[in-house]
Design a protein around this nucleic acid. Structure first.
Lengths: 215, 215
DNA sequence: TGTACATCAGTGAACGCGCGTTCACTGATGTAC
DNA sequence: TGTACATCAGTGAACGCGCGTTCACTGATGTAC
């Protein structure tokens, strides 16, 4: 009955050995986190979702935390890619590309709530999960590089510190994403989209630094 | 051996009946949330901490969510008080009191991490917990009123919308609190305190609106 | 003031559940010769 | 090319655990008369 060789028809399972269980577990974790938040996922349920016995995950992950950290790691990597793509080296026009970067931040929180939650809501201890801190640093690095480019437009003697700009814009983006994109009692109706709110905030901010055109 | 009447010496327990179990459970929940996050607390452990059988809490709370919602509710109320005290009606000088308001926001996140987590990290559904949304609204109201007072300083024909100011400042404060005050892989070393970062951001922002003196 | 009674708040035992983790095992895969 | 063997990845059964929730109960409190 099999026309397709060793495959079993799309599940990825190849008989007794799964073939790609590590990937399947990460995908399952993402799905579960998306459905119930970082607290609502368990190794056992991820195993079930991957169609495997509850002992199997331990061949690939030390414990639930390690799996969660892997999801966060991939989340930061994906996040970095999305931010880099949006920034695009700041060409052709840095300020408008900087706005695109902000929009990409919110878009990520919106379209990848599971990754976003694993990255920012799971409160994983960073030590013991090598690479996680680095991955988070790389994501922030995109923003910092962009801020450097933006700051460079100011005359040298009154150039604002790029790191400060990056921190302000990051915090504003994260705050808007947390308060107005995600669910919770703090969420409220806005008279505008989160994207527009962020754009207005960033433009006003850059304006006060003399880095953006007019009132 | 008892010099103090019906008390049993400080635990609040008065014999068979606890006397104030509802309060004790809320306090226990706050303590547990502070120690392990909103996900790491259970009704059973709160009962144990209050020195009571695991069935007792059900006389006071429908389930764990109801207890968590009560913590969040009290958190928002306390938060409102702190913010109001810091703002102090904007006297004597609105802009500097507005900065105090921001500092109070961060101070709350720092000194009351359990309440802060219950309010912003627990992802309680707001429906079914009457009063929670209102309490959150009142906290935001302090910020919105302050923003209105600040905006009123601008000439009428080019006065920025106070709601927008309130939303921007709230998001910036919340972002800084989430990223730089609380633990997690996203937290990084800052070249300044979160308080100074917020103050600089708010001043620059107000400046672009023509609402603050300076550079 | 005393007594009977109603109400209330907490008990403790019990239940079923799902989880994390371990263990000896076994089927599948890859490799040496 | 074939065979023996080592290694690897998943099995399934089992364990102890703590949780949420229920139940009939009982001790304490308050109140009517």
């Amino acid at each position: 009955m099999s026309w397709s060789g060793p495959s079993d028809g799309g599940s990825g399972r190849r008989g007794y050995h799964h073939g790609n269980l590590r990937e399947a577990l990460v995908e399952a974790a993402v799905e579960l986190i998306g459905a119930k938040g970082p607290a609502g996922f368990t190794i056992a349920e991820a195993a079930r979702l991957a169609g495997v016995s509850p002992a199997a995950p331990y061949r690939h992950f030390r414990d639930a935390d390690a799996l969660l950290a892997e999801v966060a790691l991939r989340g930061f990597t994906l996040f970095t890619e999305r931010l880099e793509a949006a920034w695009g080296g700041g060409k052709p026009e840095p300020v408008s590309k900087f706005e695109d970067l902000g929009r990409a931040y919110l878009a990520f929180a919106r379209t990848e709530p599971a990754y976003y939650a694993a990255m920012f809501d799971s409160h994983i201890a960073t030590d013991g999960h090598a690479g996680l801190q680095d991955a988070a640093d790389r994501a922030f690095g995109v923003l910092r590089d962009a801020a450097e480019r933006i700051a460079a437009a100011a005359p040298k003697e009154r150039r604002p510190p790029a790191l400060m700009i990056a921190l302000h814009v990051w915090a504003l983006s994260h705050g808007i994403a947390s308060l107005f994109v995600r669910e919770g009692p703090q969420r409220r109706k806005l008279p505008m989209s989160p994207e527009d709110l962020l754009e207005a905030g960033v433009l006003l901010y850059l304006q006060s630094l003399g880095l953006s055109g007019g009132a």
